[in-house]
């Protein structure tokens, strides 16, 4: 990080924070800094632990999930293992999927799957990164279970009536991700090229992969 600097007695060097240093410091930002500093002072964790965890958060993006989807499209055995145990399948690819079990559900010509967490905002962060704002919104959490097709339409996704729309409300001990259908006309594409087609939103299930 080029912008790293440190104040006297600031407990850890950190990248320049435009939100803190150029905007108002809210009570909650101050609370966050204060809690972090107290926990470091008390050696609950170290400044290094904090830095590593932040790096880890930044390293997670939908690209992790996309690589797995592409591999599953190319390798039926891998796909079977992924549908059985995402976390173990991720490890094969040196992807850390975290300790919370993730279940991959497969879209087929008969079933279109989409995920939500109506009670909070559970999300497969280790494979898709931090959730988009709308995933955590009252509108999405309230409406997806009751009018999934209307919500999908707001994302530009029309699912034919003959296809079952199956909503997964991840309330408990699992996180979900969608294994989208491989688009037609991609027979000659390699894993990297295929991974490039796989978006975050299609792994949430609000979109399908569209190739124009």
């Amino acid at each position: 990080m080029s912008e790293t600097h440190s104040h006297d007695d600031w407990p850890y060097p950190h990248p320049k924070q435009p939100d803190i240093e150029d905007g108002p410091l809210t009570d909650y930002m101050a609370m966050t800094e204060a809690v972090a500093e107290l926990l470091i002072d008390k050696e609950v964790f170290s400044a290094d632990d904090m830095r590593r965890t932040l790096e880890d958060i930044d390293s997670k993006s939908p690209a992790e999930g996309a690589r797995m989807v592409a591999r599953a499209w190319l390798d039926p055995d891998f796909k079977a293992r992924m549908l059985e145990d995402v976390n173990a399948a991720a490890e094969e690819m040196s992807i850390d999927a975290g300790t919370i079990p993730i279940l991959a559900v497969e879209n087929t010509k008969d079933v279109h799957n989409v995920i939500v967490c109506t009670l909070c905002s559970c999300y497969p962060r280790y494979l898709l990164g931090l959730p988009p704002d709308w995933y955590k919104s009252r509108a999405y959490r309230s409406r997806l279970v009751r009018e999934p097709r209307a919500v999908l339409a707001e994302f530009g996704t029309e699912i034919p009536d003959a296809v079952e729309v199956r909503v997964h409300d991840s309330t408990a001990e699992l996180r979900y991700m969608i294994l989208p259908m491989r688009p037609k006309g991609t027979g000659d594409m390699d894993e990297d090229a295929l991974a490039g087609l796989v978006t975050r939103d299609c792994m949430i299930g609000v979109t399908v992969i569209d190739r124009d």
Binding site: V145, E164, V165, H168, D169, T171
Partner: peptide
């Protein structure tokens, strides 16, 4: 697995739509 028609008697979508919830 719940049928949407069971959860919402006025459900507008097709008969086959469902919601799956993890329950203890």
């Amino acid at each position: 697995l719940f049928r949407q028609n069971e959860l919402w008697p006025d459900y507008q979508g097709p008969e086959g739509d469902t919601t799956e919830v993890d329950i203890q």
